[in-house]
Design a protein around this nucleic acid. Sequence first.
DNA 1: CCTCTTGTGTATCGATCGGTATATAAAGGG
DNA 2: CCCTTTATATACCGATCGATACACAAGAGG
Lengths: 199, 199
Amino acid sequence: MTIGRPRAFDTERAIVQAMRLFWRNGYEGTSLSDLTDELGIARPSLYAAFGNKEALFLKVLDRYDRETYHFIQAALDAPTARALAERLVYGACAFHSDPENPPGCLMVHGALIGGEASASVRKETNHRRSLLRHRIADRLRRAKLEGDLREDADPVALSAYLVAILRGIAVEAASGAQPEDLRAIADIAMTAWPDRKAA
Amino acid sequence: MTIGRPRAFDTERAIVQAMRLFWRNGYEGTSLSDLTDELGIARPSLYAAFGNKEALFLKVLDRYDRETYHFIQAALDAPTARALAERLVYGACAFHSDPENPPGCLMVHGALIGGEASASVRKETNHRRSLLRHRIADRLRRAKLEGDLREDADPVALSAYLVAILRGIAVEAASGAQPEDLRAIADIAMTAWPDRKAA
DNA sequence: CCTCTTGTGTATCGATCGGTATATAAAGGG
DNA sequence: CCCTTTATATACCGATCGATACACAAGAGG
């Protein structure tokens, strides 16, 4: 079938292992030696399979969005605006409380800042973060049309607020906050959500 | 008076210049060459004046807390709990909207994550972040005693919420959010603040 | 002037960074 | 068996990392 020597490692498994490293130590904080040590493969194998460090990180981002940070999609599928908000903030609490997950959020910690060498990677994570806000805003606009969000509510402002809460929870979790601390934040955050009746 | 050759640069000015570099590119993202280029001094002069990179960063953190991130102190001096919250969230908006300031928050971006080389620096910024939450919680406890915060309000939870909002605003600002976006977040965040009357 | 003390400039240290050249090993096709 | 193709392992590349050894310059005190 496939010609040539077969690959001696599982690329999907390698991406997950790389994701955990980037997640914990950031893009610049994770060296090629860290990666090859953790993955148990030699350097040229990694380059042959993924291209280079940046390309591997992009693959990791895709995997993170698609299969790890998936409470976002569950939230966007919620039937009402309030359910969307609840699934977002409490989903973030559960996500960042899961001891299986490294602390914080890969999208925030992975490449929020750094030197000029990681500028393109930073741009990509920035883009994905703003994309999330737009997806939430679109869903809230639809909620207004469907009548489960007040007429005077501002979808753009509310989506910015929700995303800010997610970032705040992620940073606090990375700083060592306990699950109950995160839930307290989410509880208070939800009291700001507009009810169906006018003010 | 002082014996020996006089220093040819202003250490206070150098700390401010170093702060802006660390603020913009993070601790690990700022190299010694970046620092010496920006400060216009040679490498041994920097080491003689500040010790090493980590010691310089700690001096920068002190300066940031004391003279740059000072809206925090103004908030803690507020007469009421609600005024505290308002000064915090709107102060953060103004702070992160000021075009004179690099994007984001030095305490968050400077050393939120990284390799093992910056572990001690990360521990220090973590400590300072948790210190802020405790100072706010203490102020809110006093507010309850003084009667301008509802009896059933939880100072610890509210302080965690406020800090999370600050982190969220900082991350969004670093991601390129506009001043009006930040104010929208703050406006909604404040609607979660408990009124004096019971629910 | 000389000495002492401290800061400056050059040139460099070993370690590590991301990335590769080269040779060899393991499969399929003939 | 040989040839092609792909993956592996060793060893290495130039560049940069944080940090210094060394010699010299600039002031104070004698």
